[in-house]
Design a protein around this nucleic acid. Structure first.
Lengths: 146, 146
DNA sequence: TAACAATATATCGCACACGATATTATTTTT
DNA sequence: AAAAATAATATCGTGTGCGATATATTGTTA
């Protein structure tokens, strides 16, 4: 038995599990909004800056377009975003929010911070711990992203 | 624009991205072993203790059986594990390593710590940072797991 | 300017995750 | 002990992620 290969010694397994569990804990609130977690990420990107090409959204989320394109297609079908051909560059598809997509921002603001706060209430981490966590994760992300 | 809904302010997005990027950085080594990351997790669980029912593996990985069952079916097809009906409890399926599955431990030990070390070499985090990160992630996991 | 390379997006196939439901065996209750 | 509840696993459908490839448009180069 190699200690290096024990699952409890692995940062990676902790990341994998923590990411899944946190995403799961968003689910009740996101269900109330009728969206999934990756769709919520796309909406956050567009709430911050509307009308972006597919590539910019993908870069922001550190995803490939072969993940983002079908995601956007599903969102368009659900009516939260719309896409139109770029005018200068006809290869681009510019993604923008519909009224429904814009309206979800206020609902998300009402549901999600409160809902997550409740679920994390029992967590012993303090503000400083979350700040450290953010810095550590940013180091890993910056080391590994292309 | 609600600051709470900005993607850069979210621990969740950092977790989601870091988990994907770290898993991606395992991929070259895992490809050399002919397995995927979730399959590697199952193997680590079995390297630690062979012959376990599906439920124990699922609990260990914080996954549901509807994720683990197809994963094990694919692994059985690839010849790294085998399954047999439980003898005391005939509802159970006991999962065990094949010779091929056992042999992968040594290959993993030779490839993975070195390979990950190289990819993380430029990361500014020190041992103490990784220890803090592990503690913080464990707090989140323990708060959210059922 | 015609050929070629690069860019933006899409399509395809496969392997997860996970909610919902089904199936089989065991345990508990009546 | 027969019926009901529970437990262990499997099946099904949908939505990601991602490697590989295709298509359309733009930029570059001989």
């Amino acid at each position: 038995m190699h200690a290096e290969l024990q699952i409890d010694n692995q940062i990676c397994f902790r990341l994998y599990s923590a990411a899944r569990l946190v995403t799961q804990s968003y689910t009740p609130m996101l269900n109330a909004l009728g969206i999934t977690y990756p769709q919520y990420l796309v909406l956050m990107v567009l709430w911050e800056k509307d009308c972006q090409p597919v590539n910019d959204i993908a870069h922001r989320l550190l995803l490939e377009t072969n993940t983002v394109t079908p995601l956007l297609q599903r969102m368009e079908k659900q009516g939260t975003i719309k896409r139109k051909k770029g005018e200068q560059d006809k290869r681009q598809h510019i993604v923008s929010l519909t009224e429904k997509g814009k309206a979800l921002e206020q609902k998300a603001y009402e549901l999600i911070p409160t809902g997550m706060g409740e679920q994390m209430a029992a967590c012993p981490l303090k503000l400083k711990d979350y700040q450290n966590l953010a810095r550590e994760l940013d180091s890993i992300i910056n080391t590994l992203k292309k």
